[in-house]
Design a protein around this nucleic acid. Sequence first.
DNA 1: AATGTTCTCAACCGCTCAGAT
DNA 2: TATCTGAGCGGTTGAGAACAT
Length: 382
Amino acid sequence: MGRSPFCDEDGLKKGPWTPEEDQKLVHYIHKHGHRSWRALPKLAGLNRCGKSCRLRWTNYLRPDIKRGNFSQDEEQTILHLHSILGNKWSAIATHLPGRTDNEIKNFWNTHLKKKLIQMGFDPMTHQPRPDPFSSLPHLMALANLRDLIQVDHHHENHDYLTRLQFLRSLLTLQYSTSSASNYGNNADRDHILMEPYFSNMNTLINSVQIPVGENNNQVSQIFSTTSQPLHYHDDHLDPVEVPFSSTTSTNSQLLPSNLMTNNGISTSTGHDEIMGHQGNNNSLDFTSMVIMSQGDNPPDHHDYSPWLFLPPLSPSNNNISIVNPPNFLSSTGHQHERSTSNNSTIPEDFASSSTSSYGGPTSTSTSSYWPEIFLHDHDIIS
DNA sequence: AATGTTCTCAACCGCTCAGAT
DNA sequence: TATCTGAGCGGTTGAGAACAT
């Protein structure tokens, strides 16, 4: 591990230490101590800089260094101290005899941070993440999500069940990307994007109100088999609203590259954007995915917020459609009227079934600033 | 078995700060 | 007081190990 050997411009060696170098360093320090790290290498016969010698000694060669895995007690101590001190690794290390700041830092970055995230805590604040739905548009930007969502619906009370199913799909996605730790590929990126959801899974689940007296078997059924796909049965599932709050126009950066083409359409609603392919017939084709965000409502317009529809979730219908609010601005600034959308940003079969929801929040919406996501009962995977 | 991907952690880099001059 | 110097700290890197396909 570490770096390959090479020398700096002064001809001093860098990279991994050899056993011979270690021996020289240990021997010298045992005999003379290390009053001056700068002078030490020359005196010890090492072709290294003093800084490198100090690091090697303090992080590896020091006789009181403890090796091996961190114990449960040590782990708890690190978590506790980190919640108080933050990334003050040297300060934390003073409470863990035999452990170096570097070792603790590495342990934090490779284990404890992930652990906290998976438990639903912010690794920096150690607090549960607030507003679990706040980044839902980011979630929707993941094209593959649809392919991961499996619905098992047997119950008429589909509101909370659908929400749970939605969360269940998140779990699936989390499992599929949880091994990613770097930022270098799409899977990693997806995991990073999804992390707010993953990290908040418990909060998300707890946020779903299960009606008193409901049969919790439904719930346990959804979550009991996180590695098994659920199966979809019901043909008629009413829309369910999933609120989420505002995002910024940088959302477009989160879109899959296949939507960032010249055919891509960006409808700007002040701060927010919707992206999708321009398909045949000048219609928006969101068969791949759709990103949706909460738009501001300028005072002179009724509602600029686009509405995202996750339509017909069925094996026979793979479309994800976008339906515009009464008025919205295109990327060119042209204002579109609801009435001019015949040809057609609104799928005909969809428009009729969801007209009652246009033009503003429905009676069940909790906030006019919350666009609605309609999870329909045909789609989301076979 | 070969190849690709992810994880681990030793080591480096750049910066800050305290003490000396 | 201003400047210099060395030690230490936190963030980052990247080779090799471990794991997955």
